[in-house]
């Protein structure tokens, strides 16, 4: 089946600065795909390359099999974009803004009006349909960006930090809408700074840094790469931490903190905990309480991007790229 997005060795240079440095990425049709990365990682540059706001320097990128430059009209027709910036027409009431956008995609005027009303109702700002963009509150502006992205009924919906700076209620509203669209078959590409957002919504995430892909995995797979912490409370704490590495191979570190034993294990703590408890009981310890804290995706994200920086710094030819940022 044709991929929704297929980028191969994508490069974008601004003078000496490389915003995209040989990015290769594949997003399946119907997938909810997340792009994570620190500021300047190249996420927005990548998105803008897809919709024609950035011209690539090298490499190839296709959307539903069509080249973004050679077949630009087909590609742009299939994409709905909710960008980070408020780039909305200030001259017209928001319903007309949506009708214009639908019209640019070849939708007839009557149908555009119906779709505009439907999109405004979906995002909850239908009452403001006669208002111009500048008079909307910050949250309503975010809602409008989503409405504008979906009014053309896109096959690929791109959301660039859609919930940046919005309150919890709106964030949950937006998540619900996006999830519903994905369930109905729309491919979603989401960039976000909120790790929780990626964890809750995405089928797979790509972590980007310095214009390249660090890794692609499901949120669960990423979590498995981290270290969980199991804290065990003992009735009679020993003078020093017991040796358990022979009994449980996943143990990375054991230390005693007052009457509690803190054990860091590789991968999922829930899987390791029963064997750990057995090992402790075998050694004569009586357990009164246990707590497992899972590693957060945020910690893994920081670890991976920092690791990438170290790798790039050690890599001679890429040094200029890093310094240019």
């Amino acid at each position: 089946m044709t991929l929704a997005i297929e980028a191969t060795d994508l490069v974008k240079e601004y003078g000496d600065v490389r915003a995209l440095s040989g990015l290769s990425l594949a997003v399946e049709r119907g997938e909810f795909f997340g792009l994570l990365g620190p500021n300047g990682a190249g996420k927005t540059t990548f998105i803008n390359t897809l919709v024609g706001l950035v011209r690539k320097t090298g490499g190839e990128v296709r959307v539903f099999g069509d080249d973004v430059e050679d077949d630009y009209r087909k590609v742009r027709n299939s994409i709905g974009l909710a960008p980070q910036e408020f780039n909305v027409d200030r001259f017209f009431p928001i319903r007309e803004v949506l009708m214009h956008k639908a019209g640019y995609h070849g939708v007839s005027e009557a149908e555009a009006k119906r779709r505009a009303d439907e999109a405004l109702e979906l995002v909850g700002i239908y009452d403001k349909r006669h208002t111009r963009f500048d008079w909307l509150s910050g949250g309503m502006k975010r809602r409008l960006l989503l409405a504008r992205a979906i009014v053309t009924d896109p096959d690929l919906l791109i959301l660039d930090e859609p919930t940046a700076g919005v309150d919890v209620q709106l964030r949950h509203d937006l998540w619900e809408i996006i999830n519903r669209l994905n369930d109905e078959g729309t491919t979603i590409l989401l960039t976000t700074h909120y790790i929780e957002e990626a964890e809750r919504l995405c089928d797979r995430v790509a972590i980007m840094d310095n214009g390249r892909k660090v890794t692609v995995a499901t949120p669960e797979e990423l979590m498995e790469r981290g270290s969980d912490t199991i804290t065990v409370e003992l009735r009679d704490p020993p003078a020093s931490a017991p040796r358990l590495d022979g009994a449980v191979t996943e143990i990375e570190d054991v230390r005693l903190e007052h009457d509690r034993l803190v054990v860091r294990v590789e991968g999922g703590g829930g899987r390791v905990a029963p064997r750990l408890l057995n090992a402790l009981e075998d050694r004569g310890h009586e357990i009164t309480d246990i707590e497992i804290s899972r590693t957060s995706l945020e910690e893994i994200f920081v670890e991976l991007t920092e690791g990438q920086r170290g790798e790039v710094e050690r890599d001679g030819p890429e040094r200029d790229t890093l310094e240019a940022y």
Binding site: L53, R73, N77, I79, N87, V88, K101
Partner: peptide
């Protein structure tokens, strides 16, 4: 200046 020309540029207009 206000970047809303992106509405046109990201559309399938030739």
């Amino acid at each position: 200046w206000n970047k809303y020309i992106h509405e046109t540029l990201t559309s399938p207009l030739s």
